[in-house]
C-alpha cells in the first residue's frame, strides 16, 4: 500500500506547487486591497459586472446545448459503425483540433467579416451583406466550432457501451424511435452527456479569445473582464482575482449539478 502511495508523490508535488499554491494566492488577492489589508470590497464590486457574468453564462449555455444537439446523432452514428470505420471517422472529428486554436478562430474572422468570404458569396446571388462578425451569434459559433469535439468524444465513448441488442430489446417491447431515444438511449448516454456538458461549458464560460476576436467590444465575457484586470488599462489584480474566484464557484456549482445527475441516473450501471 505504502509503495503504491509513493508513486503518486510526483503529482502531489505538482499539485501543491501549481494548483494549491496559486489557488491560495488567488484567494489571498481576492480578499485584500492594494496595500494588503483584508477587504470584501473586491467581491462586492463584482455586482457591477453582473450583466457580463450573465452574458457569459447564457452564451456558454447556448453553445453547450447546440453542441449537445449536434453531437448526439453524430456520436450515435459513429458508435454504430464497424470498428475499422469508427477509427477513421473519429480522426476526422479530431482533425480540426490539431490546428492551432487561434488560427481556427482567425479563419472564422475572415469568413464572417462584413466584406468576408461569406458575405461576398451571398452578394453574388444578391443577398446581404449581413452583419455577422462582432455579434453574440458569432461568439456562440466560435464556441461551438472549437469545443464540439469535446462533446462528441465522451458521448461516443458512452454510446459504444450500449449493445445493439439493448436497442432492439426496446423496439421489441413496443418502443418506437422517440420512445427508444427517451427511455433507453438518453439515460444510458447520461455519463457521456454529463462529461460533455462539463467539457464544453467550462471552457466556453471562461473564454476570452473567442469573444474578443468574433464578438468585438460589445460582447465582453468574464474571461475578457478578468484579462483586463491583469493586462489591460484597468489593472486591478485584486478585482481580477475576485472575479476568477466567483467564476470558479459558478463552474463548481455547474459541475456538481451535472455529476449529481450522473450518479443518480447511472446507479448500478458500472
Amino acid at each position: 500500500m505504502i509503495r503504491k502511495k509513493s508513486l503518486s508523490a510526483p503529482y502531489l508535488v505538482w499539485m501543491v506547487l501549481f494548483i494549491a499554491a496559486p489557488l491560495a494566492i488567488v484567494v489571498y488577492y481576492a480578499l485584500t486591497d492594494k496595500s494588503g489589508n483584508f477587504t470584501l470590497e473586491n467581491l462586492m464590486t463584482i455586482g457591477r459586472y453582473s450583466s457580463v457574468f450573465a452574458r457569459s453564462l447564457i452564451l456558454a449555455a447556448i453553445a453547450t446545448v447546440i453542441c449537445l444537439v449536434l453531437s448526439f446523432p453524430v456520436s450515435y452514428f459513429l458508435s454504430r459503425l464497424r470498428a475499422s470505420k469508427q477509427k477513421i471517422m473519429l480522426m476526422l472529428v479530431m482533425l480540426p483540433m490539431w490546428m492551432n486554436f487561434l488560427l481556427r478562430t482567425y479563419a472564422w474572422m475572415s469568413l464572417l467579416e462584413n466584406n468576408g468570404i461569406i458575405n461576398r458569396l451571398l452578394g453574388l446571388i444578391g443577398l446581404g451583406p449581413f452583419q455577422m462578425i462582432n455579434t453574440s451569434g458569432a461568439v456562440v459559433l466560435g464556441m461551438v466550432y472549437n469545443f464540439l469535439p469535446y462533446m462528441i468524444l465522451p458521448l461516443y465513448t458512452a454510446m459504444t457501451k450500449i449493445d445493439d441488442s439493448i436497442i432492439e430489446a426496446a423496439q421489441d417491447l413496443g418502443a418506437g424511435t422517440i420512445k427508444t431515444l427517451l427511455r433507453v438511449l438518453l439515460p444510458l448516454s447520461a455519463p457521456g452527456i454529463a462529461t460533455g456538458i462539463t467539457m464544453v461549458f467550462v471552457p466556453s464560460v471562461s473564454t476570452f479569445i473567442i469573444s474578443r476576436m468574433l464578438g468585438g467590444g460589445a460582447n465582453l465575457l468574464i474571461g475578457d473582464l478578468i484579462e483586463l484586470q491583469f493586462l489591460g488599462n484597468s489593472y486591478n489584480y485584486n478585482l481580477g482575482s475576485a472575479m476568477s474566484l466567483v467564476l470558479m464557484v459558478i463552474v463548481l456549482l455547474c459541475m456538481s449539478f451535472t455529476n449529481g445527475f450522473d450518479d443518480e441516473d447511472m446507479e448500478g450501471v458500472v
Partner: peptide, 22 residues
C-alpha cells in the same frame, strides 16, 4: 411492420436487459 408493431417478444442471446433499470 417494424419490430415494435409486432405481437411477438424476444428473449435475446445476451439477455439485453436495460442496465439503467431495476
Amino acid at each position: 411492420f417494424p419490430p415494435y408493431k409486432r405481437e411477438v417478444n424476444t428473449v435475446f442471446q445476451k439477455y439485453a436487459l436495460f442496465p439503467h433499470l431495476n
